[in-house]
């Protein structure tokens, strides 16, 4: 009886796994065919940030793919900032989130906002990966060493060493106005982000 129960359990688990796997490939771009590592379904959120809207955004300085170092404080008093943490290069979802942002430049500009992309990958990996997306208009920063230190400051470093798929909206005064630590398996809606940006002082 016991083993029979086990058998049913495995059949059930198998069916569920199949159901899951059939939902992953949605809308995949031909460009990345054969180049994307399939992570499977991951735990939606695997960290807990202490930051809240209204708090001051922790400053940081990181190297960018283009070579220059970028600090959050560079934008203080000048621009609203959207920080987009994505988990890892060459993974599903991440590989189409930024290309989407890449054709929405005018929407960011309309709201006097700059976009900063951050992952924990090293610069050479980010260079090759972002090149595959085409010319990106926003800086991509590497939080590689000390590993994930900025992600840790923002409370979005997962136990696996990658980051959450998280968005932070920071106003010109350096105050956090919106946080979305998203289900890592899903792409956050651009529309929601733009509505948040519209609330800010231009």
């Amino acid at each position: 009886m016991f083993s029979k129960n086990h058998f049913y359990f495995y059949v059930l688990a198998g069916i569920l796994a199949l159901l899951y796997s059939s939902t992953i490939a949605y809308g995949a771009s031909e460009q990345f065919k054969g180049k994307i590592y399939n992570t499977g379904m991951l735990k939606p959120v695997d960290s807990k940030t202490k930051l809240k809207p209204g708090m001051k955004a922790p400053d940081f300085t990181l190297p960018s793919v283009s070579g220059e170092k970028i600090s959050l404080s560079n934008f203080l008093g000048k621009k609203n900032v959207v920080i987009s943490f994505v988990p890892a290069a060459w993974t599903p979802v991440c590989s189409d989130q930024w290309p989407g942002y890449n054709i929405a430049k005018s929407l960011f500009e309309k709201n006097a906002a700059v976009l900063i992309g951050i992952t924990v990958d090293n610069i050479p990996t980010l260079f090759t990966w972002t090149k595959e997306m085409g010319e990106l208009w926003f800086p991509v920063l590497s939080d590689f060493y000390p590993h994930g230190s900025v992600a840790k400051k923002y409370g979005v470093l997962r136990s696996s060493g990658t980051t959450e798929r998280a968005l932070f909206v920071i106003d010109k005064k350096g105050i956090i106005r919106y946080i979305d630590v998203h289900d890592i398996n899903k792409r956050p809606g651009l529309e929601t982000l733009m509505k948040e940006l519209e609330k800010l002082e231009k």
Binding site: S29, Q31, D96, P99, G100, I103, M133, G134
Partner: peptide, 9 residues
């Protein structure tokens, strides 16, 4: 898809 770089090109 608007998110697909090939579609953009």
């Amino acid at each position: 898809s608007m998110y697909c770089p090939y579609c953009q090109k």
